[in-house]
Design a protein around this nucleic acid. Structure first.
Lengths: 140, 140
DNA sequence: TGGAAACCCGATAAAAATGATCGGGATTCA
DNA sequence: TGAATCCCGATCATTTTTATCGGGTTTCCA
């Protein structure tokens, strides 16, 4: 079970935009300097735009900027926009129901897990990430 | 972001074994009746065995049974055994650290998410699933 | 004691998802 | 007008997931 780099890239990009919030549009080229293939990131930013999380300014001196304040954008929003809704299996959505013994109990647990994960992701905003900034980098 | 069917199959199979706990080994053929390709499930059960979650009886009349009580086996155990540890990106484990601005704040959030998800998965046991059994099936 | 029932296992194939690239188009600023 | 920049569908490459194959070993039991 893993979050693909797609989500990671998108969160990084959004965090960057949050840092630069209010400073006008940021060009793709600049955002991609964190180490993402430009054209790949472009796709992801397209998803984020269509989800209403960023807005764009086209033409020279154009770029991307947050469509809402950092407080109003959650990690869950970002991941859902780029990776699609979190879902753990098909049985959740549509499937001839409960024909097999025990299946339904498993399904219940599935739903609980899905909900819990969503709650976590929805509970972290870009603002939270900005406030994290001051802390020591535990890597060094 | 999704939990692959691998994990789903494994949880279903373990739930089945929990239902049959104490009734002797259950044959692969029977477990697979819930709708999983037998040989695929066999691989998964192999992982579960190597992780110490099930034990097997070989030979005729053999099969699989839980290696511990349902209370001592969590959904997290099962998923980790079949899908490997939950990890959201590489930066978590090893990577030249924090060279890009903002990266580290994102990393912190990443770790928090990973930890939270693990907590949820570790918080649900097979016993919990068994006790769920009585509830109405919301599918119908 | 032999055969059937059952698990074990490495290899490989097929399918799907992910990651990345391409090439051209549209918009806007200076 | 031309450079900067976003837009977008298509396609390719890689990796992961899912599934199958073919043979092996162990054990029961008649």
């Amino acid at each position: 079970m893993k979050l693909s780099t797609k989500g990671k890239y998108a969160v990084y990009a959004m965090h960057y935009l949050a840092l630069k919030n209010g400073e006008g549009p940021q060009a793709l080229k600049v955002i991609a300097e964190m180490g993402v293939p430009e054209q790949y990131l472009e796709q992801l930013l397209g998803n984020l735009r269509r989800a209403g999380l960023v807005k764009t300014v086209r033409g020279a001196q154009g770029g991307y900027e947050l469509a809402r304040t950092p407080k109003e954008i959650t990690v869950g929003d970002i991941i859902e926009a780029t990776e699609g809704p979190i879902s753990l299996s098909e049985c959740l959505s549509e499937q001839s129901p409960c024909t097999k013994s025990g299946t339904c109990a498993a399904r219940y647990v599935w739903e609980k897990i899905t909900t819990s994960i969503n709650d976590i992701l929805q509970g972290i905003t870009l603002q939270d990430m900005l406030e994290q900034k001051g802390e020591k980098c535990s890597h060094e």
